[in-house]
Design a protein around this nucleic acid. Structure first.
Length: 573
RNA sequence: UACCCGGUGGUGUAAUUGGUAACACAGAAGGUUUUGGACCUUCCAUUCCAGGUUCAAGUCCUGGCCGGGUAACCA
């Protein structure tokens, strides 16, 4: 049986067959001896939110490279801004990285551990005349930065003496000045065509307690001032980040060169985009805050927690990340590829069960009233070692409402008056009568069965076109089943009319809750997190909300369904 | 209008680094089947455009065109 959560995440993945451009750089560095054969990468999340599938791409890249080249990958929390950062996130991020199947070993770091070193280096830059304290307000700094097409203007405080700068910086650190009153800036070039080089801010004053350093500091390093130096301290070789940091690389290099310290190589790749999905932290937060989803672990979200609750496996996510590849082109991957990787893994490992989601009762008129037979069913045709189980069959059972049609189109192979079909692992049955209520709704079907077809084979070799799943009525376990679909109705959720935003594209049917579903009795002991294939319906897993007296299953993904496809295209005749 | 980075089938990624476009997904057709699942077969691009170098260019050069990123005391 499939184990919940972390038990099935042993990572024995083979490396990709061809090297992507990042791995090529690492491989070249190894042959040239650029880093003396060392390979050190890092995954540097800010602990201010939960991880999503986009992070998984970065995680698989960084940890994957380290594993393939015999190096190490550091997990470093980039916690330089105490305003939104919380301990809760550092825990959940670690849990998610582990669940994805990666291990940072000893290498758990925090940028906040480097605050002392960073400050010493800042002093060093001030002493070298390469940094200064600016008394301008944030608005003034911004106004004097110039625009993309025109140069900035020097701050009136730009040429303070080293002594004055040192004094001011010391007092900034000592907490003498209020928030926002002063900043430390690198003295680079206010006319640089790269606006990031127009005297970037290194420290800002924030009298805000930090989740790890408490109130030890009231000045906090900005991203650019902290990141490269943290990489340097950890002797990272390849600092791999996403494309939007390309413009930051000259600054990354400038700081390291100005300091004259160990200098890692920054390389940028394109972040992951998925159809029918949003990935922005800000927008995900909005969905959660406005209760448009149930929480960060809502199974419709691309968060790792959401995917986990939905029933995704770490193997499927890793395989997806490998298949997607790494490049510098801004691309959008079809979610169908993610779902394909999921099905591929689930198909191999999920035990099969029968469950009727939308039941309609069937009575076999020529079957003995009190008889119950135990029939053998194969647990997983893809895995003989999964063995078989027994499932009860009796005179009354349920089949799927959509598996019967009174007046079917030509290509409908399922049950219809007068037609013989197979009940999986049971018997051939023929529909003889349809019982309807006053409104004409079908409420019950009557059939006859052929005792010679026990197990589902006909001794005379006669064929049937359809095979249906079923659940014996007396033994059935009622359950709730949550059917999930894409959260958005459009491939690009941002594609909206004037005045609307992405929430306009939310799919009203992304969650359909079914009650009164009927499960075969062997599902009684299913543990939260365990995964199954409900034959002909899809892959499902037990939700954490599930209880012994009230089982709840989430639909992870449907099976490929050619009949549904034909119906959609109107090609059923 | 400045700077940086990109452009190979419907979607992505590759092409022994100048040698005659491969793999996966999606789609289509067929086979097989006790899941309309899985599996198997077949089909589906001359690489943004225009010049140039070369016996030979997706790979190199020049010029266009198109797309993305960048002006937080966010990361």
């Amino acid at each position: 049986m499939t184990k919940p959560d972390t038990a099935d995440n042993e990572n024995t993945d083979a490396p990709p067959e061809r090297l992507d451009f990042v791995r090529q750089i690492v491989a070249d560095d190894c042959t040239s001896g650029k880093w003396d054969g060392r390979v050190v990468t890092r995954f540097p999340p800010e602990p201010n939110g939960y991880l999503h599938i986009g992070h998984a791409k970065s995680i698989c890249l960084n940890f994957g490279i380290a594993a393939e080249f015999g190096g190490a990958c550091h997990l470093r929390f980039d916690d330089t801004n105490p305003v939104a950062e919380e301990e809760e996130y550092v825990h959940s991020i670690q849990q998610d990285v582990r669940w994805l199947g990666w291990d940072w070993g000893e290498h758990l770091y925090f940028a906040s551990d480097y605050f002392g070193q960073l400050y010493e280096w800042a002093v060093q830059l001030v002493e070298a005349g390469k940094a200064y304290v600016d008394d301008q307000s944030a608005e003034q700094v911004s106004a004097n930065r110039g625009t993309l097409t025109s140069p900035g203007t020097d701050s009136p405080y730009r040429d303070r003496s080293v002594e004055e700068n040192l004094d001011l910086l010391t007092r900034m650190k000592a907490g003498e000045f209020p928030d926002g009153s002063r900043v430390l800036r690198a003295k680079i070039d206010m006319a640089s065509p790269n606006v990031l080089l127009r005297d970037p801010v290194m420290y800002r004053i924030m009298h805000t307690p930090h989740h790890r350093t408490g109130d030890a500091w009231c000045i906090y390093a900005t991203y650019d001032w902290a990141h490269g130096q943290s990489d340097s301290i950890e002797r990272v070789t390849n600092s791999i980040c996403t494309l939007e940091f390309e413009n930051h690389r000259p600054l990354y290099d400038w700081y390291l060169d100005a300091l004259g310290v160990y200098h890692p190589q920054q390389t940028e790749f394109a972040r992951l985009n998925l159809t029918y999905t949003i990935m922005s932290k800000r927008k995900l937060l909005r969905l959660v805050e406005e209760r448009l989803v149930s929480g960060w672990d809502d199974p419709r979200l691309p968060t790792i927690q959401g995917l986990r609750r939905r029933g995704y496996t770490p193997v499927a996510i890793r395989e997806f990340c490998k298949t997607v590849g790494v490049a510098k082109f801004n691309s959008t991957i079809d979610v169908a590829l993610l779902e394909h990787c999921l099905r591929q893994d689930l198909n191999k490992h999920s035990p099969r069960r029968m469950a009727v989601l939308d039941p309609i009762k069937v009575v076999i008129d020529n079957y003995p009233e009190a008889q119950v037979e135990q029939l053998d069913a194969i647990n997983n045709p893809e895995d003989p070692s999964a063995g078989t189980r027994q499932t009860p069959f009796s005179r009354e059972f349920y089949i799927e409402r959509e598996d019967f049609m009174e007046d079917p189109p030509r290509k409908f192979f399922r049950l219809t008056p007068g037609r013989e079909v197979r009940l999986r692992y049971a018997y051939f049955i023929t529909c003889t009568d349809v019982v309807k209520d006053a409104d004409g709704n079908v409420v019950e079907l009557h059939c006859t069965y052929d005792p010679a077809t026990r197990g589902g084979d006909s001794p005379d070799g006669r064929k049937v076109k359809g095979t249906l799943h079923w659940v014996s009525a007396a033994e059935a376990i009622p359950a709730e089943v949550r059917l999930y679909d894409h959260l958005f109705t459009t491939e690009d959720p941002e594609d909206v009319a004037e005045g609307e935003d992405f929430t306009a594209n939310l799919n009203p049917d992304s969650l359909v809750t079914l009650t009164g579903c009927m499960l075969e009795p062997s599902l009684a002991a299913a543990e939260p997190g365990s995964r199954y294939q409900f034959e002909r319906k899809g892959y499902f897993c037990v939700d954490p909300d599930s209880a012994a007296d009230k089982p709840i299953f989430n639909r992870t993904v449907t099976l490929k369904d050619t009949w549904a496809k034909l119906k959609k295209k109107g090609k059923t005749h």
